[in-house]
Design a protein around this nucleic acid. Structure first.
Lengths: 342, 342
DNA sequence: ATGAAAGCGCTAACAC
DNA sequence: GTGTTAGCGCTTTCAT
C-alpha cells in the first residue's frame, strides 16, 4: 500500500541542488533560524518557489521538531456550542500556522484515553480538551509526560492544570435569580450530565440563588438531563406532570431549553405566558427561536481563542505561568421569561 | 524547541528487546502482515502491552506506510449542516481506524489551495472536500498526483472525480412545486452563493418548476444570498419590500430560511399565514423552530458516511471504479407553508 | 519465519 | 554563514 509517488515529491534536497547550497541551509531558510546570508536566502527562496516545495510535516516532526498540529478532543460536533468554540480555536491556530486534528469520542469513554495517548505520542504538539467527563484517568499520564494541554469548560483542582471555562456557578445563580426576581417561586431545573463539572456548577448556582431568596430546594423540581434536546423534552414533561408543576424552568443549556419549550407546547401551554424558560450558552440559534430564548451567554468563541493562546504559550514555554481563565457569563433577557401567571 | 522527552517513549525497538526478537518482527506483528510464528506473535503482543507501546504515526508515514489520516476541508463549522456530515464521516473513520484532520478555510480562498497541497504532501492519505467554490485550481494538481479525494456536495464534470451529493436540482424543483401546488404564483427565492454548484442547481430546479407550471420567471423575485442567516434576512426584507411582494419564499438552505422568517416577522407579517417559507437541508434545528420549518431534507449523515467509504475504497484500490453518488432529497412538510392568503 | 540494513525527509548538533 | 552528519521510529526489501 505504497503511496503513488509517480511524480517525485520535491524535497529539501532538490531545493538545495537547485539553489546550489547544502540542504541544511535550505532547512535554515525554511525555519527562519540562525543567520543565513541574505543572498543565499533569496536564492533558496526562489528555488523553493520554482520547484513548488512543501515541507513534509511527518519528517519534521520525526526529526525532533514540532509537528505544528494541535489535537482537539471533543464529544461530537452537532452542537453549535462546539462549532463556536472551534471557530475561536481556529482563528488562533491559523494565525500561528498550526493545524487542527479533530477527535470526536461520541461519548465512548474508552476511546478518549486511547486518543489522548496517540496524540501525545508525537502526532500533536499539544492538546485541547473539551467537555471531558472525569478526565482524570488520562490527565494523569499527560501530566507525567509533561505533555501540554488546556482543558475547556472544566475547572480542574490540580494546580498544574490549565483551563478555560465560564463561570458556571455564577451563571446558574444569575439565571435563577432572574427568574426569582420576576416573581417565580417554583422553579424547576433540567440539569446537564451530572458527571460534568460545568453541569454541577450550574446546579450549585441554582441552589444558591434559591437559598439566598429563602426558597427551599425541592428535589422533585430537579430533573437530571443530559444537555440534549430530547433530554430537555423529557425533563420538561416530567416537571409539568408534577402535581404542583413549576412556573419557570432553568435548562442547563440552550439545546435542552429547546426541548423544554417543546414539552411546554406539547402540554398545551405557552412560553412565557404559562411557563418561563431560561437556557445557557447563547448559541446562535437562541436568538432565532420564536419566542427568542432568554439565556446565559458564555463567550464561546473567546473561550476557544483563549484556550488556544494559552496552549501555544505553553508550547513556547512549558513553565509558562499563565493563569487559567474563568470568563464571566452574561444574562441575555429575550422573550421566554416573564412574571408568573397570576 | 525540543519535545520534552524526559520519559523515554517506548519504540518498536524496546518492544523487540523485551520480546527477544528483532524489531522488524515487531513491525510485522504490529502491521499484521506476512506470517509470524504464533508463539512469537504472542510474545511480542505481550511485550507491547507490558511496555504500553503506541505507534508513532509520523515515523510510519515517513517510512512509506500510510498515515491513516484523512483530511477534511470545510469552510467553517458553525453550520449544523457540516456537523451532521462530519458525524457520518466520523463513524466510518472510527470503524476503520483513521484519524481526521480538519481544515477550515473561513472562505479565505487562498488558503484552500495551500492546505490541499500540504495535506497531499503526506500529511493525509486522502482528502474529503466539502463546499468548495470553484475547486478546479487545486483539483487539477490533485489529479495529476493521483492523490485520492472525494468531493461532498459538488457535481464534478470530470469523469475521474468522485463525489457525493444530494439531488439539488430535483430538491429545488420539488420545493418550488410544493409551493405552487399550494396555490402560490408569486414565489421568491433567496439563493446561496452562486459560485457553488449546489446553489445553482437549486435555483435551476426552482426555475424549472416555475416553467412547468407556466409561471414566468421574474428576476426581481430572485435575491442572491449566501447561505447565511443575515443573508436570508436581507433577502426576505428585499422581497417583502417589493411593490408586488411574493406570497411564498424558497430559501436555499435552512439557515437562510430562518433569516427570511425573521424578516417576515420584522415586517409585521406571519409565517405561514401571510408568507410561506421552504428551506433546504433539514438540519436538526428545522424541526425545533416555531413554527416548524418545511424543508427539503438531504441525508447529511449518510452523505458523510458514503463519501468516506468511497474515499477508503479509493485508498485501497486507486483504480476503484465506485460510482459517485447522488442522493435523493425529500420534502418534509411542516408548518411554514400554507395556501396563499386569499 | 525471522533478521539485517537501507532509507523516508527532516532537524540539530558539530565542524569548518 | 554554511556544510557534514547522525539520528528521529518506522516500513520494506533482501538475505538467510
Amino acid at each position: 500500500m505504497k503511496r503513488n509517488k509517480s511524480s517525485h515529491e520535491v524535497t529539501i534536497k532538490d531545493v538545495a541542488k537547485e539553489a546550489g547550497v547544502s540542504y541544511s541551509t535550505v532547512s535554515r531558510v525554511v525555519n527562519n533560524k540562525s543567520y543565513v546570508n541574505p543572498d543565499t536566502r533569496e536564492r533558496v527562496l526562489q528555488a523553493m518557489v520554482r520547484l513548488g516545495y512543501q515541507v513534509n510535516l511527518h519528517a519534521r516532526s520525526l526529526a525532533g521538531g514540532q509537528s505544528n498540529v494541535i489535537g482537539l478532543l471533543v464529544v461530537d460536533l452537532t452542537t453549535q456550542y462546539l462549532g463556536e468554540i472551534i471557530n475561536g480555536i481556529d482563528d488562533v491556530l491559523a494565525a500561528n500556522r498550526y493545524e487542527l486534528m479533530l477527535y470526536t469520542t461520541h461519548r465512548r469513554k474508552a476511546k478518549e484515553s486511547a486518543y489522548v495517548h496517540m496524540m501525545a505520542r508525537g502526532l500533536a504538539d499539544g492538546l485541547l480538551i473539551s467537555l471531558p467527563r472525569e478526565p482524570e484517568a488520562y490527565l494523569t499520564s499527560l501530566r507525567q509526560k509533561g505533555f501540554p494541554y488546556v482543558i475547556i469548560d472544566f475547572r480542574s483542582e490540580d494546580p498544574s492544570d490549565h483551563f478555560v471555562t465560564a463561570d458556571n456557578y455564577q451563571g446558574g445563580y444569575d439565571a435563577t435569580k432572574h427568574l426569582i426576581s420576576l416573581g417565580h417561586q417554583r422553579i424547576g431545573i433540567v440539569t446537564g450530565w451530572m458527571d460534568m463539572v460545568s453541569a454541577r456548577d450550574r446546579l450549585d448556582g441554582y441552589r444558591a440563588a434559591l437559598d439566598d431568596a429563602g426558597i427551599p430546594f425541592e428535589s422533585e423540581l430537579l430533573f437530571e438531563g443530559d444537555f440534549s434536546q430530547p433530554g430537555g423534552f423529557r425533563g420538561g414533561s416530567y416537571l409539568l406532570d408534577l402535581a404542583e408543576p413549576p412556573t419557570a424552568i432553568f435548562a442547563s443549556n440552550d439545546i435542552s431549553a429547546m426541548g423544554v419549550i417543546e414539552a411546554v407546547r406539547a402540554h398545551g401551554l405557552q412560553v412565557p405566558g404559562d411557563i418561563s424558560v431560561v437556557g445557557f450558552d447563547d448559541i446562535p440559534t437562541a436568538a432565532l427561536l420564536n419566542p427568542k430564548l432568554t439565556t446565559m451567554r458564555q463567550p464561546l468563541q473567546e473561550m476557544g481563542r483563549s484556550a488556544t493562546e494559552l496552549l501555544l504559550d505553553l508550547l513556547k514555554d512549558p513553565e509558562d505561568k499563565s493563569e487559567s481563565i474563568i470568563f464571566p457569563t452574561e444574562l441575555i433577557v429575550r422573550e421566554t421569561t416573564a412574571p408568573p401567571h397570576p
